[in-house]
């Protein structure tokens, strides 16, 4: 849902502070830009706020010029000081990043009234190429490869799993391949039925979702797309992998 910048506060008549900041950040355009500009021309308080922000930007640039800041960020990133990926939706940019992950599923009550006690699922991803199978590890997946997922749950635990792909903000079912199919019920240590055959194309993320209760694939896809649009986390993501045929 796109929210217009011009949601002026009904009580005060001022635009929300966030919108003044978006205006400063040059995110407003056309009619939205004009409405804020008109308001600023006639509102001393908002104009002062915007001017204060501009002053802070000037002071910041005097202290740390943009070119210096950018060089410093790139140098820190290159030195490996970059932050670790945030659980679970933000993803390492490289397809050769760590691909074996121990995921702790979120605690939540099960439908039957039992409790899912933070069970740990161990996920192993195997790459199948030319009749050989190996842990994905540092192998870089390429078109023609197949990926197989092995999931180990603690004894006595039961869960439901599905693999979905996200390209840009669109979610697609992979395993099971149909939106109408139920997720796979898993217990103990087992492979997810089937494999994901890589056919190349645009970069995409593969998300393995494991939840303690059954869920509908169709709903999961809607949830995933919503999570991407909102920058939110998706519940139960136990493993994710970036597939980027163009990656160096």
């Amino acid at each position: 849902m796109h929210v217009l910048l011009s949601d002026f506060d009904g009580r005060t008549g001022h635009p929300p502070r966030r919108d003044l900041e978006r205006w400063l950040a040059q995110e407003a355009s056309g009619e939205e830009w004009k409405r804020i500009a008109d308001h600023l021309a006639s509102c001393r308080a908002c104009e002062e706020y915007v001017e204060a922000c501009r002053g802070e930007q000037e002071a910041l640039e005097a202290r740390s010029p943009p070119a210096t800041f950018a060089a410093s960020v790139l140098a820190r990133a290159a030195s490996g000081a970059a932050p670790r990926p945030r659980w679970p939706f933000l993803l390492a940019a490289s397809a050769t990043a760590a691909l074996l992950l121990i995921a702790v599923l979120l605690w939540r009550p099960a439908a039957e009234g039992e409790r899912w006690r933070g069970a740990a699922a161990v996920v192993r991803v195997y790459l199948e190429r030319e009749g050989q199978r190996a842990l994905l590890g540092d192998h870089r997946p390429r078109p023609g490869d197949r990926l197989r997922y092995e999931i180990a749950l603690p004894p006595g635990q039961r869960a439901y799993a599905a693999l979905v792909a996200l390209e840009s903000a669109r979610a697609l079912p992979v395993l099971p391949a149909s939106r109408a199919a139920p997720p796979f019920e898993i217990a103990g240590t087992s492979f997810l039925p089937g494999s994901a055959a890589l056919e190349g194309g645009a970069p995409a993320r593969l998300l393995l979702v494991i939840r303690p209760a059954p869920f509908a694939i169709d709903s999961l896809l809607v949830e995933a797309e919503f999570a991407v649009r909102q920058g939110r986390t998706l519940e139960g993501v136990a493993h994710q992998l970036l597939l980027d045929p163009e990656a160096p």
Partner: peptide, 22 residues
Amino acid sequence: MVPGLAFPIKPPRPPLDEAAIA
């Protein structure tokens, strides 16, 4: 049937360079 991944081509955001960060 083995499900495949055939993604429509959609270019990702280009990596940020020094000028874009600045």
